[in-house]
Design a protein around this nucleic acid. Structure first.
Lengths: 155, 155
DNA sequence: CCATCTTTGACTAATATTGACTTTTATTAT
DNA sequence: ATAATAAAAGTCAATATTAGTCAAAGATGG
């Protein structure tokens, strides 16, 4: 979302393509060259910004003619989105991943902006800070799963 | 009165920018260098002078391209009732008392029915169950206080 | 003198960047 | 066909680059 580091810039570049097309297929080394970073940074960008929590799936192939393909998850219906997210959350989730989930809920209009803000406030790091990161992530997961399950009844 | 110490000067510097712009994004170390103070003093200034009670929200990111962003928000009217509720909650709150707080929010139209339901789902007993009643009540309190503070302003 | 506010710095945490090494797949040579 | 080589992408840990926390020391005002 920002533009001050290369990972954000690469993220924005890819998302711009994905705004028009359902998927984008890249050569890792080409993108690395384009932005003058080492190839593995492309993996870092994908791993931190194009997760299933964010609403993306990624496939790749090595060897000659290899590629990385990023695809926007196809949303069949709200229940399927909720199931996918609940599954992705599992037993624990970091704040960063949590924000991704909230972003996906918002993008699919499963919550309003206000509701997303409240959910964000309820699950941010300061709020859940109890000096035990593992437990914090577990509680965050419980809260989010509870909310998502609640949303099932309304959709 | 202002300007006698560096914290006041830094505060004034930031507020001058915020008089023109809705938000300001800084690099902590840049500002620290500019005023020749240690970086953590910037945190002190923010913590003492840019609180939500004063109408500011703060976000930050660490790592390469990190930043601190201060945003001026419009405070709403029902501040007394929020303060009262926050006070009443204190450091811990049971599920029963939590429901009462949510009821008060609803009655005063500080949240919609949907938002109240989400808040309920987030703070109910099953959701927060971790086998430690005291800690559960503490976490419930933190969540609710965080939400109440969020309700101080319009996004 | 005491209480509160400010300043400082050592330590911690989160995020980004880099590069060495591995794995997979395709192509080429025999 | 098979083996060797090349051409991709993946993994992981080290390093770099930020910001956060906390408590001690210093300053200030009543």
């Amino acid at each position: 979302m920002q533009g001050k580091n290369l990972s954000d810039i690469i993220e924005a570049y890819l998302k711009k393509i994905l705004a028009d097309d359902e998927k984008v297929e890249i050569s890792r080394s080409d993108i690395a060259n384009l932005f003058d970073v080492v190839p593995s940074q492309i993996n870092y960008v994908i791993k931190t910004r194009f997760t299933i929590q964010n609403g993306y799936t990624v496939e790749s192939k090595r060897g000659g003619g290899g590629y990385i393909r990023i695809e926007k998850v196809k949303l069949l219906d709200n229940l399927e989105i909720l199931d996918t997210l609940i599954n992705a959350i599992g037993d624990e989730i970091s704040q960063r991943e949590g924000k991704a989930v909230i972003g996906t809920l918002l993008a699919n209009e499963l919550v309003t902006v206000n509701e997303a803000d409240l959910l964000s406030a309820a699950t941010n790091k300061q709020t859940l800070s109890i000096g035990n990161k593992g437990l914090e992530n577990e509680i965050r997961a419980k809260i989010m799963v509870s909310i998502l399950n609640h949303l099932r009844y309304k959709s």
